[in-house]
């Protein structure tokens, strides 16, 4: 009897997970039995054990506690994980949508006009490889607002993949389809909407997927710098608290949210893709 590939893969994933968690759990030494403490231990308040990487069981218990009440707000240093994620998502979405609003029209322009492509290419080539966080000091100085600066960093990092993919997709639209538009006397705007946009949409969406991935990577780092709120700030804050359980929990949560963002765009991409 052979199970479908999907089921077999699922079983194997489960085994890998159980093995990893099991080994991790076993490798974790239980705190030494309460006995005579050395002078050092007494000085450290028996904290050395507490500071070790926590076992999965603790993390799961912590995750359960956090996720069962994700939106509590007990002052600036104690907010629910849902609120922190919410702040991060809000920044990412604002920066990302602003980037799309700029990148897609400019990408169209570059893709449709060889002149604009050549004229703008040097700027893109120089600006693209700059680490988004390198913009942070300049953003903070010019914008004078840490919140807006974080959004600007998201904007600047998510603009390039969308811009380049849009230009690439638009420039690569099959000549035949353009000819169909021409023989049907479609104007520039209607050609762009009726023919070029749907033809280039899968490529544009690929750029958008890459961008959301990068934006989610960058927001964590940006929030560590600007502080205050957000999942990046949360990770750093828990590190300062030496609460590794929370750190590991939030790392995993960052991964899950990133995956969900990618899945959402993958779904949109499926909607606009076409078989030729």
């Amino acid at each position: 009897m052979t199970l479908p590939l999907r089921v077999r893969a699922l079983i194997l994933s489960g085994i890998f997970l159980a093995l990893t968690l099991g080994l991790w759990e076993l490798s974790h030494k239980a705190p030494a039995a309460a006995g005579e403490m050395t002078e050092y231990e007494m000085l450290m308040g028996a904290a050395s054990e507490e500071a070790a990487v926590p076992p999965p069981s603790k993390i799961i218990a912590h995750a359960w506690a956090e996720l069962s009440n994700p939106f509590y707000d007990a002052g600036p240093n104690d907010k629910g994980i849902g609120i922190q994620i919410g702040y991060s998502l809000q920044r990412v979405l604002i920066g990302y949508l602003a980037a799309a609003a700029v990148a897609i029209p400019v990408g169209f322009l570059i893709g449709m006009s060889p002149l604009m492509y050549r004229a703008l290419d040097p700027f893109i080539q120089v600006l693209k490889p700059i680490s988004p966080l390198a913009w942070m000091p300049l953003a903070l100085f010019v914008i004078q607002d840490s919140e807006a600066s974080a959004i600007f960093v998201i904007f600047i990092c998510s603009i390039w993949p969308m811009l380049i993919n849009t230009a690439f997709g638009v420039a690569g639209v099959r000549k035949d389809w353009i000819n169909v538009a021409r023989t049907h006397e479609l104007g520039h705007l209607r050609t762009a909407v009726i023919v070029i946009l749907p033809a280039a949409a899968p490529t544009i969406l690929t750029g958008m997927r890459i961008s959301i991935g990068i934006a989610w990577l960058v927001i964590v780092a940006a929030e560590m710098l600007v502080g205050g709120t957000g999942i990046g700030y949360y990770v750093w804050n828990e590190w300062n608290n030496l609460d590794l359980t929370s750190v590991i929990f939030s790392i995993l949560l960052i991964g899950v949210v990133g995956m969900l963002l990618d899945m959402a765009l993958a779904r949109v991409q499926r909607l606009v893709s076409y078989a030729d």
């Binding site: 169909v180 023989t183 006397e185 749907p198």
Partner: peptide, 20 residues
């Protein structure tokens, strides 16, 4: 001078828009 709806074209590779 330039394409026009007065002249319809059928290409060898059909040139249908695949998403429609």
């Amino acid at each position: 001078a330039g394409p026009s709806l007065d002249r319809g074209v059928v290409f060898q590779n059909y040139s249908l828009l695949p998403w429609l």
